[in-house]
């Protein structure tokens, strides 16, 4: 009798556990279903850009669009590159991006070091004031900045594309938090060993904060690549045009009908560097942003 009871109990347990298993499976199923749907929503425009970029104009205009091109026209990419003068645009953007990133890094590192380690009068007040500027949306600066650079006679120069955005309070804040996590004893130890502040910064702080610095570099480069409104306002001449504006101008200024597949090809070319950066360096992008966000 007791044996029978026992086996029945075991059966119950098995029943419960298989029920639980099913529930677990169902939960997982919905989670993945949701993720897949969201992924499709996010990725579809990219897919659309890619297939459109190799279609012929006629195929693109079909009333029922094809989901895979009947004929693959790689020539669209060559046309796009030449028509939009992408080479010059790339170089311009690269120049502005690299120069502003390097200068911005120097400024960020030095000011973050000062705010994290050095003792001076009004340090906290100054830092609070800097942080307060973060509450003003960037768009509001556009008008005042425009007036300022106009008076300085900087219109249509590289300077105007680089200088106004060299100081980023957010990056300073990010790096300062990172620096503050480096134990003070390291600084004291280095001092006893006769290391100057700058050497300590170079030899110890920067290597230790390298992941954050890489994040800042990536974000800054991406910012230069994506900037649109400001360059369009202040330096929209052929010599200084950056990639986003160049793209827009190249295809809308042309009279008649826009060749959308060629335009898509150009967009694909321009997106490629950012896409690669994101795929290979997303670890650093996430790290920098989440770390700075959590601490402090």
């Amino acid at each position: 009798m007791s044996n029978i009871n026992k086996t029945m109990a075991e059966k119950d347990i098995r029943l419960v556990s298989s029920k639980q298993k099913f529930g677990h499976f169902l939960g997982q199923f919905f989670v993945y279903f949701f993720l897949i749907v969201m992924a499709i929503i996010v990725l579809f425009p990219f897919y659309w850009m890619l297939i459109s970029s190799v279609k012929s104009l006629d195929e693109y205009r079909l009333a029922v669009p094809t989901l895979f091109p009947r004929e693959i026209l790689w020539g669209n990419y060559v046309t796009a590159f030449n028509q939009a003068n992408l080479g010059t645009l790339f170089l311009n953007t690269l120049y502005v991006g690299v120069v502003s990133t390097i200068l911005s890094l120097v400024i960020t590192v030095l000011s973050a070091f000062a705010f994290a380690r050095l003792e001076f009068k009004g340090k906290n007040t100054m830092f609070a004031a800097l942080l307060a500027t973060m509450m003003i949306p960037g768009e509001l600066f556009t008008i005042t900045n425009y007036v300022t650079v106009n008076q300085l006679g900087w219109m249509k120069t590289y300077t105007v594309l680089i200088v106004p955005f060299l100081v980023s309070v957010f990056y300073i804040y990010l790096l300062r938090q990172n620096f503050m996590q480096i134990p003070n004893e390291l600084y004291l130890a280095a001092k006893v060993d006769g290391t100057s502040d700058l050497k300590y910064l170079w030899k110890v702080m920067i290597p230790l904060a390298l992941p954050t610095l890489i994040s800042i570099t990536i974000l800054k480069m991406m910012g230069a690549w994506n900037s649109y409104v400001w360059p369009r306002l202040v330096a929209n001449d052929a010599a200084h045009q950056l990639i986003t504006n160049g793209l827009r101008n190249a295809f809308t200024d042309a009279s008649g009908q826009a060749d959308i597949p060629v335009q898509m090809a150009a967009v694909a070319i321009v997106s490629l560097p950012l896409f690669l950066v994101f795929v290979f360096l997303r670890k650093y992008i996430m790290k920098g942003v989440s770390r700075g966000g959590l601490k402090g």
């Binding site: 134990p183 004893e185 004291l188 130890a189 030899k203 110890v204 230790l208």
Partner: peptide, 11 residues
Amino acid sequence: LVFQNYALYPH
């Protein structure tokens, strides 16, 4: 000087 938490340069 030797610190309580050693203060070695981790990198």
